[in-house]
């Protein structure tokens, strides 16, 4: 507990510094002529998508551990990670259409990656709905959904991809020139730090909640 309380502010500070530095790096990166300014969304969009998928993985693994061992700690990790999937997914789903508006002239194009992200996001929204509305004792059920959600990622990705590429209008994703990679990696690292900090904070909240429940139970005893 003690070291974590130092770790989170450190992570947050580091992430803040990195996010502050990021616009300068992005500005220094080459200007993409066809997409123009909007291309720079990419440096936020892609890292948040990566973090979203990572968080789905974390939630799935934690859920599996909870199913096998029933450790409340694993459940706390799973809830926290699921909420992070939804938060970072929201960033992806907001920045994606901004890109689409410029690239294709419409707010939503059934682009394979964006659609996969939407499906994954929906799965984890349903996970949170379940936890919110199913009543007491829904942790095990939620854990099963978490495992299924994670196992579903490759199927969603594959099926949406094939579904789209069967059609002629495949989208053109420009291959990255090296100068663009540095700010992308920088952004990814910043989002990763932010993610870990938020996840730890959320887990601490969950731990406090459990302590509170235990304290209530003790008072009643």
């Amino acid at each position: 507990m003690q070291n974590r309380s130092i770790l989170v502010p450190v992570l947050l500070c580091a992430a803040a510094v990195m996010f502050f530095r990021a616009p300068f790096m992005i500005d220094a990166a080459p200007y993409e002529s066809t997409m123009g300014l909007i291309q720079r969304i990419f440096y936020f969009h892609v890292p948040s998508a990566m973090v979203m998928f990572l968080s789905a993985l974390v939630c799935g693994v934690a859920s599996a551990v909870y199913l096998a061992k029933r450790s409340p700690h694993a459940d706390a990790v799973a809830v926290s990670a699921a909420e992070m999937v939804v938060v970072f997914g929201l960033i992806v789903l907001v920045t994606g259409p901004l890109w689409a508006r410029k690239a294709w002239g419409v707010w939503w194009q059934w682009d394979a990656r964006l659609t996969s992200a939407l499906v994954l996001w929906l799965i984890f929204v349903s996970y949170l709905l379940l936890r919110r509305f199913a009543g007491a004792g829904s942790e095990m059920v939620a854990a099963a959904v978490g495992v299924f959600g994670m196992a579903n990622v490759p199927f969603v990705y594959w099926s949406v991809n094939v579904w789209r590429t069967i059609h002629p209008n495949t989208n053109v994703v420009a291959s990255l020139i090296p100068e663009m990679r540095v700010p992308l990696y920088w952004g990814t690292a910043a989002f990763l730090l932010l993610y870990i900090a938020l996840l730890l904070t959320r887990m601490r909240l969950e731990a406090s909640r459990m302590q509170l429940e235990a304290a209530y139970a003790e008072i009643e005893d």
Partner: peptide, 13 residues
């Protein structure tokens, strides 16, 4: 044996 449903206690010791 104890059993809790969330904060509600159904059985205590």
């Amino acid at each position: 044996v104890s059993r809790h449903y969330g904060r509600r206690r159904a059985l205590a010791h």
